[in-house]
Design a protein around this nucleic acid. Structure first.
Length: 517
DNA sequence: GTTAGGG
DNA sequence: CCCTAAC
């Protein structure tokens, strides 16, 4: 039964989570680096329990049947019908992630066409309900890997990893220079939006109708004129500055005194697929799960609204006009999380003839898989091109997603001691305020270090030098360097823009060994 | 395009 | 690391 090549496919049927506010940007990016980011650690712990359970259960598992191909139609609104979806090779793991309910402003933008959620920072508790892992022996069974991927991808709403055979999830992401990608994306925004629209149309028919309905959506009324702002819940997180968005609640309400109160107990996040070799360590499995979850939660999700089984598409109509009022039957109202950005759309077999590719850049447009047409295209919404090559390289969607995310916000790259050294020396020589020169002088070949980065680093260095060693974090910077930082900082604070190219030998005495011009 | 500073 | 006013 145990095959050398066997691979575990763990399918997480979904994560349930209550509403949560948008995370600070600093928490929105996934990373497996050593870091002090609290949410990460938290999530790690949570997911560890899943991973442990998953692995544990897999010991006594049975093999599964082969996947059926081309079965890409799922019953509408049937979250648990995966066994009919050609995903039998994937085992069923139901996992609930309970999130700590958090404060009133859980909905970022009620008035708009979407709500941005980030559940990541609110994870408080995780539960493994019925873990049942089946082991898949041998190779991926579908004839055409890519085709399988397509189907799998589509079936799972393009969510997580592509089940590329013999490609393992590479936990360690390579560092890449995403500056150009960013620039390119920004400049091509409009064009890709067009592509995106086309894609959305093209893939309409192969896109899943399956949606993920909230298990527990309760609606109740509020008393008129009471807590206009606290529509969603009472303040559970005390300290939160008033948001600009909150205004939106008032301006367009126009519902008179009739308020509808929505208490969304939890959202369900679509499946999560994990593929990992048998020989992988438990730790790597944990990291992989972590990454997959982070990749999903790190991106922004759309929220769909269903009323009486029909999707509410018109974002401009009032609740009243839509039929969502205190007097109507609100039990038929449901909210769903939908995949949004950064998800790859791979040409399906149907579309192979005419793939929407930009020849020049060999990119394929991404699209909000099943929801593009249902939403207004938000002008502010990022549209991230996805390099087909990445997929062909065998990257999992998790990784691709990460890459795309990296295009949004550059990955964190802590300065090494030698970099700090170089920076300090350059500043000693050139002073602060000539960051471009400093860049050219000391970091000309370091493409990923912009002069703004250097400026920022200097800022933190000055700060670091001013605090006690106990309060410092990250790779420790030699005290000698910090002394030089402090010396140079105080020196250039006084000698503003004078004798800029003059070595700073004079400053603060001792630790300046030599300054080469 | 760079700087400077808050987020 | 991001954003952006100001230059």
């Amino acid at each position: 039964m145990v095959s050398k090549n066997s691979i575990y496919y763990g399918k997480f049927d979904g994560f349930q989570s209550p509403m949560a506010p948008k995370a600070p940007r600093s928490l929105r990016r996934s990373s497996h680096r050593k870091s002090s980011e609290g949410s990460k650690i938290c999530a790690f712990d949570l997911l560890a329990s899943i991973a442990d359970k998953l692995l544990q259960e897999s010991e006594s598992s049975t093999s599964s049947t082969s996947p059926q191909k081309d079965q890409i139609t799922l019953p509408k609104e049937s979250p648990h019908s995966d066994n009919d979806s050609g995903l039998e090779h994937v085992s069923d793991v139901k996992t609930n992630v309970k999130l700590e309910p958090c404060e009133a402003k859980n909905v970022d933008k009620m008035e708009g066409d979407l709500c941005n959620f980030n559940l990541f920072n609110s994870i408080a508790e995780i539960q493994t309900e019925g873990v049942n892992v089946k082991k898949q022996s041998g190779d991926f069974t579908a004839s055409d890997p890519m085709e399988s991927c397509v189907n799998t991808c589509v079936l799972t709403k393009s969510y997580t990893s592509l089940n590329l055979p013999s490609k393992r999830v590479n936990v360690k992401m390579g560092i890449r220079d995403d500056t150009k990608m960013r620039a390119f994306r920004e400049k091509s925004h409009a064009r890709y939006r067009r592509i995106r629209k086309m894609m959305a149309y093209r893939y309409q028919k192969v896109t899943l109708k399956k949606n993920y309905q909230l298990p527990n959506t309760t609606i109740s009324e509020t008393k008129p004129n009471e807590n206009r702002e606290k529509i969603y819940s009472k303040d559970r997180c005390q300290t939160e500055a008033p948001s600009k968005r909150r205004k939106l609640f008032h301006e367009k309400s126009g519902n008179g005194d009739s308020h509808v109160k929505f208490s969304i107990k939890s959202f369900k996040i679509p499946e999560l697929y994990i593929e990992i070799p048998e020989t992988a360590t438990v730790g790597s499995l944990k990291r992989t799960v972590m990454e997959a979850v982070s990749a999903i939660l790190g991106g922004e999700l759309h929220v769909g609204i269903f009323l009486k089984g029909k999707k509410v598409k018109d974002n401009d109509r009032t609740l009243q006009q839509t039929g969502i009022s205190r007097d109507s039957d609100l039990k038929s109202l449901g909210f769903t999380l939908e995949p949004n950005l950064f998800q790859a759309i791979i040409p399906s077999p149907l579309e192979k003839e005419a793939p929407f590719q930009d020849k020049n850049h060999e990119m394929i447009a991404t699209s909000a898989a099943n929801s593009s047409l249902d939403y207004h295209v938000d002008e502010n919404q990022e549209f991230v091109p996805l390099q087909t090559e990445l997929l062909k390289e065998g990257m999992s969607l998790v990784q691709v997603t990460k890459k795309c995310e990296a295009s949004q916000r550059r990955i964190r790259r802590p300065f090494s001691v030698s970099e700090v050294e170089a920076l300090v020396e350059a500043v000693e020589t050139l002073g602060t305020g000539r960051w471009r020169d400093i860049k050219l002088r000391a970091f000309d070949d370091a493409n990923h270090r912009t002069y703004v980065d250097l400026k920022d680093k200097w800022k933190t260095l000055v700060h670091t030098a001013g605090i006690s060693p106990q309060q410092r974090r990250g790779e420790p910077v030699p005290q000698g360097l910090l002394d030089r930082v402090q010396a140079a900082h105080s020196y250039w604070s006084q000698h503003q823009r004078k004798h800029q190219t003059k070595p700073v030998q004079i400053l603060a005495g001792s630790s300046v060994e030599s300054v080469n011009l």
